[in-house]
Design a protein around this nucleic acid. Structure first.
Lengths: 137, 137
DNA sequence: TTAGATGCAAAAGATTTGCATTATG
DNA sequence: CATAATGCAAATCTTTTGCATCTAA
């Protein structure tokens, strides 16, 4: 019995073929539902979009992945890693870069100052990447 | 001639009645399109939703307001103030609190480390506010 | 066997587009 | 008067819901 089993079964959840396939294509890098469907398609796997949405919601509630809204109004999902990081999104080519940022300090500070019990936060940077800047000159 | 005129006219934009009314109800506090429509309705002002969207987009491109996506998948707009701040959103009652955070240092650091030219960033905290926490006990 | 999961169709909700009309500069 | 802005209808896009069927435990 591995960690995944334990996490799932405590909530009466089931490990299905679809869930296994979806977790296989998830990464510690933010992907939209279309990205995920595409990754599945590449492997000749066909899973209904609704199932993908429901699975991602399930994984999010279990704390396996995080959901972040990007500026293009779509949600991105990524596996949670020990080292929490944030993102830089290029407004020009859409490339996404990780940016490690130690935010424990600020999270504690915010909680103390405001009385809020912080459940999640988002920190995203948007701009133009080096390559696109050069291309414009 | 005030600053608003200059900003507008350099782009061949026009100051219309609708734009004046909309700017009147904008605040240095994030509002969704429905909030804005509501604020207008309270003043007996009827402006088409599409016009509101187009106006907000125009103001955003002019740098008068910022657009941020909240966890409920809708965009919020707020007047840009000298003192940039971030938000705490209560997942329970929806209340939004400001949280001042000096981020010049981190912005510069991110730009240097990654070669990105940062254009905007979002930092939002989501959790449960003090009142809702007490209410749950 | 039985409740949770899936897939299809359809709904919902936010935002965008097309186009004829209006009004600013 | 030229053209930017508006309003209406309809389209688009992402995400959610309902429901019959399937399947993991």
């Amino acid at each position: 019995m591995n960690n995944l089993d334990i996490t799932f079964h405590t909530d009466g959840l089931r490990i299905t073929n679809q869930r296994k396939k979806i977790i296989d294509v998830l990464t510690p890098f933010p992907q939209g539902v279309l990205d995920i469907m595409g990754a599945l398609a590449k492997k000749q796997i066909k899973i209904d979009k609704v199932t993908v949405y429901r699975t991602l919601d399930c994984f999010t509630r279990l704390g396996i992945i995080t959901k972040t809204l990007f500026n293009d109004q779509t949600a991105r999902y990524e596996l949670i890693t020990k080292h929490h990081h944030h993102h830089l999104v290029c407004n020009c080519c859409g490339k996404v870069k990780d940016f490690p940022f130690e935010d424990n300090y600020i999270l504690k500070k915010v909680g103390k100052q405001t009385g809020f019990q912080i459940q999640s936060h988002t920190l995203e940077f948007f701009g133009v990447c080096g390559k696109c800047r050069k291309a414009k000159i």
